[in-house]
Structure formats: C-alpha cells, structure tokens
Design a protein around this nucleic acid. Structure first.
Lengths: 197, 197
DNA sequence: GTCTATATGACGATAGAC
DNA sequence: GTCTATCGTCATATAGAC
C-alpha cells in the first residue's frame, strides 16, 4: 500500500489497472455471472454482493457492459503468460501440449466461469466484436492448430476447447475433485489431437 | 387437418400435444432462446416474432417458464427413439456408438439450440429440477457409460457430451458444412471412448 | 466513494372487451 | 384467439447531497 492502492496486470489488452473498489466489483460480478449468466445478473445483485448501492457501482463502471468486458479481460489475461510461452517454444507439438494442459488447469480451477465465457450469448457477442479479444483468440487457436487451417484441424480445435470448457461444468463431474478431474482430462483430451503418442 | 389441428408426439414426458398457435410460439421461442439465451429472450420478443401480442402468448402458456419447459420437452423428445433403440440393443458397444452418432447428428443440425440446452443457466436449472428430465438424462448417460460409474467413465461422458454440444457452436466451425462437420465429429469423438477400434 | 432519490423504460403477468 | 390497457416489479442509468 506504499506506492499505489491499485493492482496492475500486464494483459494482452494493454495494462489493466483496477482500483480496490473495482476489484471487489469484478470479483462479485465474476461469481454471479458464472452462475446466472450475464443477462441473469443485475447490477443490483452485484451491488448487494459487494455491500454497496447501485450508484456506487456506477461510479466505478459506466455501464454493465463495461463490467462484463473488464471481467472477461481479467480472465483472458490469466492465459497470457501461457500463450507467450507457447508462442516462443520452437517445438510445436510440445508447445501445444503445454498450452493445452494450462487451459485444462484454468478450466478446472474456474469451472463455472469458463463455461460462461465460452457459451454465454452476451460474452460470445462481446468476444466477437472487440478486436483485442478476437486477436487474442486467434493467437490461441494458432498455437493449438499449429498454423494448419484445414477443416479437420478447425473441428479438432473446436472439439478440444469445447471438451475442456464444457466437461468441467457437467453435473456428472460436479463432485469430482479438482485434482482428479484435471488428471483425467489431461489423460483423455490429448487423444483427440493425437498428442498422446 | 381432418381429425385434429394439434400435433401429437409421444415423448419421454407423456404425450405432447401442441395446438397450432402453440407450435408457432414454441418455434419462435426455440429460435430466439437459441441465439439470446433464456434470460435474454423476452415474451415481447417471442410475441413480435410470432406476430401477436404478449397477451395472446399468455393465452397459450401460463408463464415464460412453461414455454421454456415445453421447448425443452420438444427437443429432448427427438432423442427418444434413439434412446429406446439403444436401450433395446444387446450389444452395449454398438448401442453406445449408434446413440453417439445420433447425438452428433442432432447437435449438428440444431447447432445453436444444443449449446443453449446444455449451458444456459435457466435451462440447466430446469433440467435439474424436473424429475422427468432428470430421469431421461440418467437413461441417456446410462447407455453412454454402459452402467459403469467410476470417475473416469463419468469424466469421459462429460467430455463427450461437451465436445459434441460445444464444438458445433464454436465460431471456428461456423462456416463448415453440416455434412462435413458431422462426418468429422463422427470420426473424432469416438476416439475419446475408445470406440473407434 | 458512497449515499438517497429519481427518471425512464422493459419486464412478466393479468383483466376485460370483442 | 386476439386485442388494448394496465398492474406491480425490476431493469439500467443519472442527479445531487454528504
């Protein structure tokens, strides 16, 4: 608390600076959106969760949309290091496998949110409309596809990302331990891409 | 149009009878919910799409929730024949593979909706609260798991259903033909369960 | 930075005429 | 079966005091 109260993070979308009130709002929004979706989450719910009024929330963010974008930025920023490392790796198969494992780890430890990130209609629309997000996703898939861009590779990548993001929220695995789920996914998912042998 | 204006369908949830106005409402709701999610779809949007007022919609269905349930019933009913055939088959591996292919076919031909069915928070809640839905899903997974219920089998089933339902809505495959997508999925997905050799 | 209070509109749902 | 009109509630968002 010596220099600054804000928290900085270098993300793929410029430097993300969040004041402490902003951090609390984004944490509450992440949790609520993860379980109710964007359209099912109101600013009143977020304000209640933080313990302030709606007006206080609006003092930090100009609109609900801005909150959704900030939350999405935060989460994608987590992947930044993993992506940079994969892009720097000269062994493409190794890079893909490592990135895959980190994607699995993120999905398992943040189960609910990851499902929302990849399927909520509002977030999908935002991801498709914001150039920084689009470019980040392109880089991500670039590594997974290893520059190939035929139909089969694209379908494979779609299957893989869906398998990771969707399986972790399935009620069937709700009571499976994070560690066990992660290990099982790491064993099974690479089979899809022929990365296991 | 001689005997009845309603359309009957034997579903896993009793006999589904829909009058013609109801069919139009459910068709519009299916389309809108598929692209905006349940919370993002208002009764006004549904009424506008049908070309009537909200009050006319309420004359057919008592609540928005009832519409969502009816739409979900309709879609799951499509799977009924496939499930019955699979349950009657005495060769479990063959039964699983056939059911899997029909699931893939349904997902491909109704891409948007299937994503919503498996991930929309409201629908997931309804699926978990309505005993007929719960029982149907249990039967479905029963065939896919072949009665096994260890962690690995459950994770496998979760991966598979996520891979099918989630991959078809990925922007990466948005411009892939239904036929090509179906063929590629049928080739790749069974690898997950070791059903390909 | 947070509050009370409010503007404006959309929401789900209902009443009653035709 | 569809309409107009309306209810009460909640939505996003803003103004201005402390």
């Amino acid at each position: 608390m010596v220099v600054s109260e804000g928290e900085r993070a270098e993300g793929p979308f410029g430097t993300l600076t969040r004041s402490r009130p902003q951090q609390r709002i984004l944490a509450a929004a992440l949790d609520l959106i993860g379980s109710h979706g964007v359209s099912g989450t109101s600013l009143q719910m977020i304000a209640d969760a933080v313990g302030v009024t709606k007006a206080a929330v609006y003092h930090q963010y100009r609109s609900k949309n801005d909150i959704v974008i900030a939350v999405t930025e935060n989460e994608l920023a987590i992947l930044q290091d993993a992506l940079l490392a994969a892009e720097a790796d000269e062994r493409p198969e190794e890079a893909r496998r490592t990135l895959l494992i980190q994607l699995i780890d993120l999905a398992v430890t943040r189960r609910q949110w990851v499902g929302t990130l990849t399927s909520d209609p509002v977030i999908v629309r935002i991801l498709g409309e914001h150039p920084p997000f689009l470019q980040f996703m392109r880089r991500l898939y670039g590594v997974l596809l290893d520059q190939r861009d035929d139909t089969k590779a694209r379908v494979s990548a779609a299957i893989m990302s869906a398998a990771i993001a969707g399986s972790v929220v399935n009620p069937l695995v709700a009571d499976v331990d994070d560690d066990v789920l992660r290990a099982t996914l790491i064993e099974l998912v690479p089979r899809l891409m022929g990365l296991d042998g």
